[in-house]
């Protein structure tokens, strides 16, 4: 390739290194039928999973049974307790987070569901968090309930003995 020559008229001028193009567009998202059911439940202090025709219970469901490609239609009210199947300890303030560091982000398999959801683990020193720990949901005050997962503030140990975790799908126990 030939070198690009700067025309004489531009010699000595400062190069334009970048242009800044702010873009703002507003989107109106559609939650969908299944998510609407879930969020309505949350705003009433309930955790509603959905039993897929294939038999598995998903929470929250986005509406599709991944085994059959058909809608999940049967709501299943789930208890507010579950098992921590894995977790990580976060030591950095990520974008937009006002959390006290370090904190634990966990994969929680609610009793009666088949796919873990991700949420915060609190009221437990990070060094004590472990796979197999039993946890329960801590909700916001009743008057603060809103149709989003932040209505569950976090999960905390509920004092039950740890359980052995079976990896979903793989049938592996460790």
């Amino acid at each position: 390739m030939a070198e690009i020559q700067i025309p004489a008229v531009l010699e000595g001028k400062e190069l334009v290194r970048s242009v800044r193009t702010p873009a703002r567009m507003e989107f109106l998202y559609t939650a969908g039928v299944a998510t609407t059911r879930f969020l309505t439940g949350i705003s009433e202090g309930k955790i509603l999973g959905e039993r897929a025709p294939g038999g598995k219970v998903y929470v929250p469901s986005r509406g599709a049974d991944p085994q059959l490609g058909v809608p999940t239609t049967e709501p299943v009210e789930l208890p507010h307790v579950g098992t921590l199947v894995s977790f990580c300890v976060v030591n950095v303030a990520f974008y937009g987070q006002g959390m006290e560091i370090p904190y634990t982000s966990g994969l929680i398999l609610l009793d009666g569901s088949d796919l873990p959801l991700m949420h915060l683990i609190q009221e437990c020193p990070v060094d004590d968090v472990r796979i197999g720990m039993r946890v329960e949901a801590v909700w916001v005050e009743a008057h603060e309930l809103a149709p989003n997962l932040e209505s569950i503030r976090y999960f905390r140990p509920n004092g039950e003995p740890d359980v052995v975790v079976t990896q979903p799908g793989a049938g592996v126990t460790w």
């Binding site: 559609t30 939650a31 969908g32 039928v33 509406g63 490609g69 809608p71």
Partner: peptide, 11 residues
């Protein structure tokens, strides 16, 4: 389509 999300619309 303001009721179904994309996957629900597709199925």
């Amino acid at each position: 389509e303001t009721v179904r999300n994309e996957v629900e619309m597709l199925m």
